[in-house]
Design a protein around this nucleic acid. Structure first.
Lengths: 144, 144
DNA sequence: TTACAATTGAAAATGATTGTCAAGTTATCA
DNA sequence: TGATAACTTGACAATCATTTTCAATTGTAA
């Protein structure tokens, strides 16, 4: 099970970094929270049970999680950096409601193939990709 | 020609806003600059010929250009908001080199159609979309 | 356990962007 | 044209997210 935790520990020790209580707590909270939280939102969630964990520590740890490949940084419309866990290797994309901020994830092999083709035409070696569709979800349209 | 300038004037008057010398100068500079500049970069470019145009005015004007549909806001890896002129109505996407920062624009009707399909499946009405591929360009790969 | 390097929390610093406000401009309409 | 009201401007302060600093604390390799 706790393989994510193990791989984080491994990443840390491989890089001469230390496994600390705070880092493990933050990782656990991240994994058991909804996706696409910002560092601040995570900090607020942690505060009730761990009021002694500092703001900067959450920021620093999220960056570590991104560096270690456990999480990915995302930037949607707003100003904050959001994080999502990296589950498997499939790419997925986002559909974001301008009205309520709801984020729907989707995958699409045909799109992915076309993207690879485009990259190939330009002789690019892709590292990552970002695809976001913004619009109004049915609920928000109805609410008007 | 100056139809972009005309449509900006029209947007302003339709919204009870005023056509000012500064706004016209900023629009001209924006249109005659490379794409994907940030407000700050535009401010720096303007400074030599128009040292009296303030920082905040450039920010405010760029926002107006985005609101009026003349420009689009873009967020790439870095922290700054960048602007690009909206040419016609076609959607285009970006291929960005992690090595040198080069940005290549491309269009692809097949991808666009698939995106519309996805939005339709979720009953979303799309307002805009964002698609970015990050990777290494051939030059940067060779340089290694 | 020791000893040293990494980490923490709190607070200050940073960088991009936005707000404030007095003074200056623009557009309208008499 | 000129008065007037409303919008803008520039300078600078404020804000927001994030990063840095630093003294005190805590992992960890030996």
């Amino acid at each position: 099970m706790g393989s994510v935790r193990d791989s984080f520990r491994e990443y840390l020790s491989d890089h001469g970094l230390k496994t600390t209580r705070q880092r493990e707590i933050i990782l656990d909270e991240f994994l058991s929270s909804p996706s696409h939280l910002s560092a601040e939102e995570l900090y607020l969630r942690l505060r009730s049970n761990h009021p002694n964990i500092g703001y900067a520590t959450v920021y620093r740890t999220m960056k570590l999680l991104a560096d270690s490949g456990i999480a990915s940084e995302r930037h949607f419309g707003d100003r904050q950096t959001r994080y999502e866990p990296n589950i498997g290797e499939e790419h997925h994309y986002h559909l974001i409601c301008n009205g309520c901020g709801k984020i729907i994830e989707f995958e699409n092999g045909a799109i992915e193939q076309l993207l690879l083709d485009v990259a190939g035409e330009h002789q690019f070696t892709l590292s990552h990709q970002r695809l976001e569709l913004y619009g109004m979800c049915p609920d928000c349209k109805a609410r008007k």
